[in-house]
């Protein structure tokens, strides 16, 4: 593949994703309102019930808002990944996927472009969320905002690769509601996004182990540590490995027959 051609292709896919995103302002707002509701309303209600002790990577007692902020960043990425999956299924049903498939560039490369484009657009929403979160005293170290960028990118890639993989498995748009019940909610609630896992372990050992096997838990921890200028190597490795796994599965699942069959 010619490098210049690959670059123009990536720019084209990114610009289309960006244009679609800008035109769907409600998508941007809902992507922000959802985590803000959790941060402002849910956290206010549950602050007292869920006392947080000093845990890594924090070196002091923290507010519940501070604890859930990294999880909510990942929630934005999770919803965006699924939104991208939904748009892939929609494009396939409406036929516009064929435009992508008619490209002479390798299909795995096209998928990678799509994934990276989705990830980059998600990042803008995460930073908008973090800026608003400052108002409720979620104030990580200043350098943390920069340090968390690669972590957010890896997590965004994980969730957009998962979204792509799901889009290869979902036959019809109507089946997408199932993704909500069977993917988004379990992934989010069975993770360390809203409560530290030691609390979960106190309540139920087997739920704790399910959380430990949930890649989203490690994604949240990767972001949490990076935001507070630390590296969680285990979380990084698990997140990268899971991203690679879903990317390969998406490329395999994205064969011409499957993606074009009526």
């Amino acid at each position: 593949m010619n490098l210049a051609a690959g670059w123009h292709c990536f720019k084209g896919i990114l610009s289309r994703e960006f244009l679609r995103f800008v035109q769907q302002r409600s998508r941007f707002l809902s992507a922000l309102i959802r985590p803000l509701l959790w941060l402002i309303v849910f956290a206010a209600g549950f602050r007292a019930a869920l006392g947080i002790s000093i845990i890594d990577p924090y070196d002091t007692y923290i507010t519940y808002e501070t604890y859930i902020a990294p999880g909510l960043c990942c929630m934005i990425l999770l919803f965006n990944g699924m939104q991208s999956s939904l748009s892939m299924v929609y494009d396939r049903e409406m036929g516009s996927m064929r435009v992508l498939l008619m490209s002479p560039l390798p299909r795995p490369y096209l998928l990678m472009c799509k994934m990276v484009a989705t990830a980059l657009i998600s990042l803008t929403q995460v930073y908008a969320f973090l800026a608003i979160a400052l108002l409720v005293d979620v104030d990580p170290p200043l350098f943390g905002y920069l340090n968390v960028l690669p972590a957010l990118l890896v997590v965004a890639l994980l969730l957009s690769s998962l979204g792509l993989f799901l889009s290869t498995q979902i036959k019809q748009l109507e089946n997408f509601a199932g993704v909500m019940n069977f993917v988004i909610f379990p992934m989010f609630f069975l993770s360390s996004a809203l409560y530290p896992l030691w609390k979960m372990q106190e309540a139920s050992e087997w739920l704790y182990w399910i959380c430990m096997f949930n890649p989203f838990t490690h994604a949240v921890e990767l972001v949490r540590y990076a935001l507070y200028l630390q590296l969680n190597e285990k979380a990084l490795l698990i997140t990268i490995a899971t991203t690679a796994f879903f990317t390969i599965m998406a490329v395999i699942g994205f064969n011409p027959q499957k993606s074009a069959k009526k």
């Binding site: 051609a5 123009h8 084209g12 289309r16 244009l19 409406m94 064929r98």
Partner: peptide, 27 residues
Amino acid sequence: FQQSTLDLDLTVKQNLLYHASLHGISS
């Protein structure tokens, strides 16, 4: 194709630029 594959919410030019980019052509 028999079924239209244009992106309805993009302009004519944006649709064409997207196609060109998929063929590795710069804007």
